[in-house]
Write a protein that binds this DNA or RNA. Structure first.
Lengths: 657, 657
DNA sequence: TTGTGGGCGAGTCGCCGACAA
DNA sequence: TTGTCGGCGACTCGCCCACAA
């Protein structure tokens, strides 16, 4: 007899989309004696336990959560960093106001809830924190058995070899996700997790039902057929695939509870974030919410504080802004010094643990404007090996274990400085991070060596129009962040002069004819460098006549999607003259780099009243200015500069097509 | 010969979804000599003009825009109000920080751009404003021909009767939007707008192509067939419908330019906003962006300011926060006084204009915390007729025309006060706004009459536990806003004691046994009232044993989706005791009112250390407290109070199912 | 003149075993 | 043991007209 599940599935899907009758939208599994509001009939503790397991299975092996009741140190800065990197890119750290929050807050964890995003099934945790206002750093009595972090490992991933007998997790194949057929269940998995079939029948089949993290029940037809015989999920499967937006490479997992109840979850492949930029907006928490939330809690001295932690599966976005107090304390007791060598271990996706070593090359604030004197990622480090994750440039003191041997910066690095084997000419200098011997240079050392190589120290390189800025710090970190810029340049001729400076970022751009142009860009808060983890699809310093149609004086303004919505002031030194420009929120769409609509309002000299007043004048002046400057610096511009603009809106940068 | 457009349409749709090759994502039609970046071959002015028309056709007849070059007064407060009401409900006015911006800024309009949302084709305008810092109110010379607002009317809507010969607009029928067939083109429309068919053929057909606001070209097969003959769009149509998410009731419009170029636009039916709460998040502008933008502009005294105006089609969400200077000036010169009668005209959807009259019953700040001394909607008014739009309770001085006859409040209203024919007992008092004679009472008058009716002024009504609050204002406005609460109560027994007060909102709840309970609720900023235009799906004052399973002491906490994410502190007077509770961001999902997950942290008395510390204690105390209080006020609770909670997270309110 | 519905051909979905990795 | 493919039945989409409002 064939089982037709189509009708019931139709019902299910309606429920998932907008209905409210079955289950709660958000699963609430309190870690303590919490009641899972999804448990319908069976014992509440058993139900709670299987959800707990399902949640951790979905979260993956890398997830660590603070322990209920433990003392922790909470870093709002890190929290916001995570929120910003995970939420829509409309938010940018630089756009957030300064809230005058303490950079660290001592708290007790009073509740941990395991939740799941209703839109995309992404798991996250909500942690309620109770500030310990009476506690100051250090005068807190040692808490017995203070472990602070509750680590649960999900056993393995990928096909086969699951040591938890009642669970399996399979990475979806192309066949599994195609519209041509169903889901091929691994034999062992079906035998362990699904109810036994009646093998007396010729093609044994049954209906199986499994609830997801939201309590929504999914029904599938489970059949054992084919030659050779195999387990398949057929009817109902394609609906599941499309509703959950699963693609090959994602994984599904099934769990069987003690009572035989089936649960299923999904774990998406590590696709680039913002893959569906609009659908990820459905998250409940925005950086603004969190900030104002915290600010209010702080300003009113509320006894309770709420803090939602989004657990991310992406390895290089650490969610470690809730640090066990003991761990924090240890790192404070043994302060880290510049030049200190250290080790740090990373858990890998495959449950392995890798240890890397490195050296502390500086100590200082990540964001001195908003979070002065913060310990969050205050250590600038250089790794002995290449590391591409978010710990690349900066770590927090509690992340690392100091090594016994303390090296001085001038020691092991000096030899490298003496013989920098850089033989690339500057115009084709594509990747200055990885030098020939695979090592990394201190930034200023690199710069010096570079200048020596160029033999240009007194020539055009530091030309009269170069306004040297107060380099408060020029470190490997800065350099690494510059390298991020460079990574996306795709062969364009540009190299960083200095970056990650407090107050300003300087780029030294290479013109088409090997003449230099100093580009000085800073936003209202004095920082340009995108926050760690963000991708910059920047087009920096494209030669004027090659990539852009020049509609104004500032066609080389970079396209920085991360700055969308922020006000950026750029001061451009062009020849002897200095141009200032304010770039507004005109960058229209992240997903269409070709269609950015940057509005530039040039005002040639300080004091020039307005552009709107009389643009015609400025336009002509700018025209001449441009031409003479270009000539001065060796740009050859064929014919007239196409100088089109609307009279009142300044100028428009358009990509040349 | 049959024309197969499927392939080309496939191409189109790809372009629309993510491609970047064709056209700009956002149409830029500068009002001045701006260049439409969509114009490809034809004369730029003609192309610009037809886009201008298309934009206005899509915007509808109610849209008014500030004129380029004109002087205006800009009200950030109104701007935010509009942004908040149009964007996702994650934002709430009360969550926004105080930015210390001036409530009004004198500006010159330096550019107006007509734009369209890429996600949903919603039209909006971007207006660049240049603050006139030198100008103070009044010392600005009169500007010649200062009209300030550019009103363009889109001719009509709905089927038929279009007076613009080269354009038509048709509301889609069920057949038009079903997957069963194509689009039935009105005869006149096809003849006027589409290229003529070759009627010598038996079934004349052609391919027509039209560009939408984004410059994306849509191709359709246009055929003249059937018995009787009619014009149809077939191949290509269903793709358009599904890509644009059109449903029956929405409208499409076609425009033919001078050169024969076809354009098409859509105008969606006035569905309730937030119909697709997640997809509307795709808008570019968030309240935060705007606020920080403005704050920065103000703090850095930038010469330029950007201001994006989202033009809304919904009639009762005015976008009039950009006011022509002359209009503003007039309203200042002739100040409005309390008691003054006035007229005000509303443009209707059908191009008609209706005039309403009313009386000014008060003058004062809408939001004294953030925008003190603002003229934005500072007039509290009562209308002679029922008005349900956003002007119901408050208008701005420039919205109204003062009538010649100035009436005093005590005059015409006194008779009504003397004989309030209210004969509804308080327990069944469902709708106090519309009294029997259809008129409205002043709030305090209403309250007085009510008390007289009750004969309770010295009894339980103002009971010992009622903590009278500083009623800074009790006006019709306040009352009207309370009425909004009431509108959604659906027969529950509740009436407002006072609301829209500065600093707090008070509700007097009716218990099941006709005993009173004072519920005093305020958020951290001292305001509870939702912003105008928001819908409150509140469940206020539901009798304890009837609608809720009581898991804690505060089961009657209202469900207020608009407060999602905000911290609300509620002080509940229950018997002689006062309970305080902080409600966090636990309300989990707007769309599932049954699944709200309010977390309440009760602290019975000020000074009780924490809940987390030892909940058991408080739990028992609360149990007893609850019981005796209930007894005191005549609630009958059957058996034990089901007192379930997780030990550390306080209490949970669950809807009884 | 135009909205709705039945007829019906073409395309897609999804269940099946064959075959091979 | 299980991923992919061809075969093929069932279903839906969408073009056509009839019919009626």
């Amino acid at each position: 007899m064939e089982i037709d599940l189509n009708y019931t599935l139709e019902e299910e899907s309606e429920c998932f989309n907008g209905g409210e009758e079955k289950g709660k939208g958000v699963v609430d599994v309190s870690v303590g004696s919490g009641v899972s509001s999804l448990s319908s009939s069976s014992s509440s503790t058993a139900s709670s336990s299987i959800y707990h397991e399902l949640w951790h299975a979905c979260a993956g092996p890398l997830t660590s959560l603070p322990k209920n009741g433990s003392l922790i140190v909470y870093f709002p800065q890190g929290h916001l960093e995570q929120l910003i990197s995970s939420s829509s890119s409309h938010y940018h750290a630089l756009n957030l106001p300064k809230f005058n929050l303490p950079s660290q807050i001592f708290c007790r964890v009073v509740d941990v809830q395991l939740l799941a995003n209703k839109e995309n099934d992404e798991v996250y945790a909500k942690v309620d924190l109770l500030p310990q206002t009476a506690l100051e750093e250090g005068n807190l009595e040692r808490y017995e058995h203070e472990e602070g972090v509750d680590v649960r490992n999900c056993k393995g991933r990928g096909s086969g070899r699951n040591f938890t007998p009642h669970m399996f997790c399979k990475t979806l194949t192309a066949s599994d996700t195609s519209s041509h057929g169903g889901f091929s269940v691994p034999r062992r998995a079906a035998e362990n997790c699904f109810p036994p079939l009646d093998h007396k029948q010729q093609r044994p089949s049954q209906e199986i039902a499994a609830k997801d993290l939201h309590g929504v029940e999914w029904k599938f037809r489970h059949i054992y057929r084919g030659q050779p015989r195999r387990h398949l999920l057929t009817t109902g499967w394609s609906g599941f695939i499309s509703k959950k937006n699963l693609v090959s490479g994602d994984a599904v997992l099934f769990l069987r509870g003690e009572d035989g109840e089936l649960r299923l979850g999904i774990r998406r492949a590590n696709r680039p974030r913002n893959f569906h930029p609009d659908s990820v907006l459905g998250t409940q928490d925005t950086p603004l919410d969190t900030l104002s939330h915290l600010a209010k809690a702080a300003s009113t001295k509320a006894s309770f504080m709420f803090c939602t932690i989004q657990v991310l599966k992406c390895r290089d976005t650490p969610s470690e802004f809730v640090v066990p107090y003991e761990k924090y304390k240890k790192s404070i007791i043994n302060p880290v010094a510049k030049g200190m060598r250290f080790k740090m271990s990373f858990k890998m996706e495959d449950t392995a643990e890798r240890r890397y070593s490195g050296i502390v090359i500086g100590i200082g604030d990540l964001d001195p404007y908003r979070w002065p004197n913060s310990k969050w990622r205050c250590l600038m480090v250089r790794w002995d090996e290449d590391i591409v994750n978010d710990y690349a440039g900066r770590v927090s003191p509690w992340d690392i274990e100091p090594s016994s041997s303390v090296a001085h910066l001038s020691g092991p690095l000096a030899p490298k400085l003496k013989k920098p084997r850089i033989d690339l000419p500057p115009t084709s200098f594509k990747n200055p991070v990885n030098l020939e011997d695979g090592s990394l240079l201190e930034f200023d050392q690199y710069m010096r060596s570079f200048k020596v190589l160029q033999g240009q120290e007194s020539l055009g390189f530091i030309s009269p129009h170069f306004e040297s800025c107060e380099v408060q710090r020029a470190s490997h970190t800065g350099f690494s962040e510059s390298a991020r810029f460079m990574k996306v340049l795709q062969g364009q001729e540009i190299f960083p002069l200095a970056s990650s400076l407090h107050g300003r970022a300087e780029f030294h751009l290479n013109g088409a004819t090997n003449n230099n142009l100093t580009y000085n860009m800073l936003n209202m808060h004095g920082r340009l460098i995108p926050p760690p983890g963000s991708n910059v699809n920047a087009i920096l310093g494209a030669p004027l006549h090659e990539h852009f149609k020049l509609n104004g004086g500032l066609a080389f303004l970079p396209y920085l999607p991360n700055l969308q919505g922020s006000i950026v002031q750029s001061n451009v030194h062009f020849g002897q003259r200095k141009f200032s420009a304010a770039m507004g929120d005109g960058i229209s769409d992240i997903r269409s780099p070709n269609s950015h609509n940057v509005q530039i309002f040039p005002y040639k000299l300080p004091g020039t009243p307005t552009v709107a007043k009389d643009c015609k004048e400025n336009e002509n002046e700018l025209q001449n200015e441009m031409k003479s400057s270009c000539k001065l610096f060796g740009f050859s511009l064929d014919g007239e500069i196409p100088f089109q603009k609307s009279p009142s809106s300044g100028m428009t940068v358009q990509k040349f097509t």
